[in-house]
């Protein structure tokens, strides 16, 4: 009788551990997010130049940095998956992608919303927004490659190669976009992060960043668990189909 590769489809220790941790991480994430949002929207003072619009920064800036950090996390997981062939690593990269893409989209939307009152237009080809936009395209490509390949083992490797190519290119893209921006925009526009941030703004910003981090971990574990269960269902279906063929042949 053939075996299913349950060792791949059912990493038991991960399932046990994540089941125990997940509720606590959710509590931390929701708590931090609530506190952070309250401080950002009600406690922090309005900016003397930007007015109330500055509150958008507390949502935008951590989202933009999460966008990059999640991609770095994916690249690290991909490297581990390719080199050490740990089955959880490619799952982690896959599970992280839509979360990262979500933060990237959030950064783009809040950046655009912030741009309307500040720049008088919904979109300005500002260096950071442009980099985030290209990063968003990288996320989309990564997820599309996963979707396009039917064999999960193969898809994992291909996506890992793509992710590593992306991570090598991100600094080049960032540099080129910033360089391009200074080339074409000699007049300086208001930037979202001023040179000196007052401590009354630093606290909500830090808490929001932590909240995003905790939310990422919670969503990541949830998505990984779902993925593991999905793969288990897939192998069970395959084994059933296989058994039916054998019964028919006998």
């Amino acid at each position: 009788m053939f075996k299913l590769n349950f060792e791949l489809a059912n990493p038991k220790r991960f399932m046990d551990l994540s089941a125990k941790l997940l509720p606590w991480i959710w509590v931390i994430a929701v708590g931090l997010l609530g506190t952070g949002l309250y401080m950002a929207l009600f406690v922090a003072p309005p900016d003397y130049q930007q007015g109330e619009t500055v509150r958008m920064m507390f949502i935008h800036v951590p989202a933009a940095s999460m966008a990059t950090m999640v991609y770095m996390f994916m690249a690290a997981s991909s490297a581990v998956a390719l080199i050490m062939k740990h089955p959880l690593a490619d799952m982690a990269a896959k599970a992280a992608a839509p979360i990262g893409a979500g933060y990237t989209l959030l950064a783009l939307i809040t950046g655009s919303l912030w741009g309307k009152p500040m720049w008088g237009t919904w979109w300005v080809w500002d260096a950071r927004l442009t980099s985030v936009l290209v990063l968003f395209f990288l996320y989309i490509g990564y997820m599309a490659l996963w979707e396009a390949m039917e064999e999960p083992v193969k898809a994992a490797k291909a996506a890992a190669v793509l992710c590593l190519v992306g991570v090598v290119n991100i600094p080049v893209i960032k540099f080129s976009v910033e360089w391009w921006n200074t080339l074409h925009q000699p007049t300086s526009l208001a930037k979202m992060d001023g040179p000196a941030i007052h401590s009354s703004m630093l606290w909500p910003l830090a808490i929001m960043a932590l909240a995003y981090g905790a939310l990422f971990v919670a969503l990541l574990l949830l998505r990984m668990r779902t993925e593991i269960l999905k793969r288990r269902v897939r192998s069970l279906q395959l084994s059933r189909a296989r058994a039916a063929v054998q019964a028919g042949a006998a």
Partner: peptide
């Protein structure tokens, strides 16, 4: 050899 979650060669 397993592909697609099943053993093709055992």
């Amino acid at each position: 050899c397993f592909r697609g979650g099943r053993h093709v060669l055992e």
